[in-house]
Amino acid sequence: MTEDKPSKCGYVAIVGRPNVGKSTLLNYLLGQKISITSRKPQTTRNQVLGIKTDGNTQIIFVDTPGIHSSEPRAINRFMNRTAAAAVNDVDLVLQVCDRNRWTEEDDLVLSAASKSAAPVALVINKVDLLDHPDQLLNFAETMTQKHNFTGVFPISALRNKQLDTLDDFIADKMPEGPHFFPDDQVTDRSERFLAAELIREKIVRQLGDELPYTTAVEIEDFSLQGKTLHIAALIYVERDGQKRILIGEGGSRLRSIGTDARKDMERAFDSKVMLKLWVKVKSGWSDDLRALRSLGYEDR
């Protein structure tokens, strides 16, 4: 931290409807992966803090589940509560939307974001998929009539386009104050949590159509033995048929999920990883508040 400039530190909530690229944006702003991603909506279930320290400025990003209008199960209600609460006590809200697509769920997000005392900026993601620049101009003009956004930023989080401008804007909005976290810390979540999320990401990516939202992961062992990290995880599903799909013929699907997750874990933890996976049927876990708490889904 340089002596001639005061330190700055603030919180930034990243909100949006499901599948607009919030977690991808967070990972690119941080320069490393802490939030899982997939093409399936509602991949993110928990609030995750991503911490970026650059010289005198520390930015604490709050990644949230997508706000959605349907709340059929307890886990859906939990996700909506988590996302809506994220706009409280932050210094900036980033509402992420998908290029020229605005839905009723985007209006729901904007309604929640507008209740924050913090300024709200609009981040228009996936602009690389637009056919013509005029589409972006027309869409941006329509959006500015919906709300007095403090800024409108067209970006592509996946292609890393125009993120520098957004990055500078966020840093400029941070208030003066001491850093809340050590400068080398990148998330408030434990390595056990990240390990469980990496496993769940591979399940969603490989079996999203067959098992969209019916799995949860619990880490039973996370221990360093010599130079090898030993991780044992239990994957919960709700029905026997889902267990068969997840295991696959001769265990092939479970092995594939384990292999992909282990590679990501070795990069994330900078260690050789020995990963063991089991599958267990826990009927109705996604609509059972006690089960959700036992699996780590708690309001923070």
Results as ranks from 00 to 15, higher is better:
12 V>I: 14
13 A>S: 14
15 V>A: 02
19 N>I: 14
20 V>F: 00
23 S>N: 05
25 L>E: 04
27 N>W: 11
33 K>R: 15
35 S>L: 11
36 I>W: 11
39 R>S: 15
42 Q>C: 15
42 Q>S: 12
44 T>L: 11
49 L>A: 00
52 K>D: 10
52 K>H: 07
55 G>C: 11
58 Q>R: 13
69 S>R: 14
70 S>K: 13
71 E>L: 11
74 A>K: 14
76 N>Y: 15
83 A>L: 12
83 A>I: 15
85 A>K: 13
85 A>Y: 09
86 A>G: 03
86 A>R: 01
87 V>A: 01
87 V>E: 02
96 V>H: 13
103 T>K: 07
103 T>D: 09
106 D>W: 02
108 L>C: 01
111 S>E: 05
116 S>C: 04
119 P>Q: 06
121 A>Q: 00
122 L>E: 10
126 K>N: 08
126 K>P: 05
129 L>F: 03
129 L>N: 07
133 P>I: 10
134 D>T: 12
137 L>Y: 04
142 T>K: 15
144 T>Q: 05
147 H>W: 06
150 T>K: 05
150 T>H: 02
155 I>Y: 04
157 A>D: 08
159 R>S: 12
160 N>M: 04
165 T>K: 11
168 D>H: 13
169 F>W: 09
172 D>V: 05
175 P>V: 09
176 E>D: 12
183 D>W: 00
184 D>K: 11
184 D>N: 13
192 R>P: 05
193 F>T: 13
194 L>S: 01
200 R>Q: 07
201 E>D: 02
202 K>E: 04
204 V>W: 05
205 R>C: 01
207 L>G: 03
207 L>Q: 05
209 D>I: 12
210 E>H: 14
211 L>M: 11
213 Y>E: 06
214 T>G: 06
219 I>S: 03
223 S>P: 09
227 K>T: 13
228 T>Y: 12
231 I>K: 04
232 A>S: 12
237 V>G: 04
237 V>M: 01
240 D>F: 07
244 R>M: 10
245 I>G: 07
245 I>N: 02
246 L>W: 07
249 E>L: 08
249 E>T: 14
252 S>A: 15
257 I>R: 01
258 G>L: 07
259 T>Y: 10
260 D>V: 07
267 R>M: 13
269 F>Q: 03
272 K>A: 10
278 W>A: 09
279 V>A: 11
280 K>M: 04
283 S>H: 08
287 D>S: 15
292 L>D: 00
293 R>M: 09
295 L>H: 03
295 L>N: 03
